[in-house]
Amino acid sequence: MKRNYYKSDDLKKFKNITDWNPDLGEKFFEYYNSVFKEGTLSTREKSLIALAVSHVVQCPYCIEAYTRDGLQKGIEKSEMMEAVHVGAAIRSGASLVHGVQMMNVYDKLSM
């Protein structure tokens, strides 16, 4: 039998996390649903942020969910890819900025 750590059908079971702790589970989903409501930011903007973050945290469930959500909201593939690049740029920038730390250490220890 083929075994995978990630199963795409598990996304549908996400709501089941409340089964083992209804109090915290329900609080989470209430919070989650409130976050994605139309606010100062539009639901469209929130969907693109979620898509970018999904890539940064490398969550396959979230990537499927927010690609689908983006399609439903009429977000175009060019916009989605730009959002992914924003996430990727921050992630790579976060690595690269540590280069300053490396430079500091190097300079301090070198004659």
């Binding site: 139309e38 539009s42 639901t43 469209r44 689908r68 959500d69 399609l71 439903q72 909201k73 009429g74």
Partner: peptide, 10 residues
């Protein structure tokens, strides 16, 4: 193969 989003927002 996806469902429409909120009609008013669209």
């Amino acid at each position: 193969a996806f469902l429409p989003a909120n009609e008013k927002i669209l």
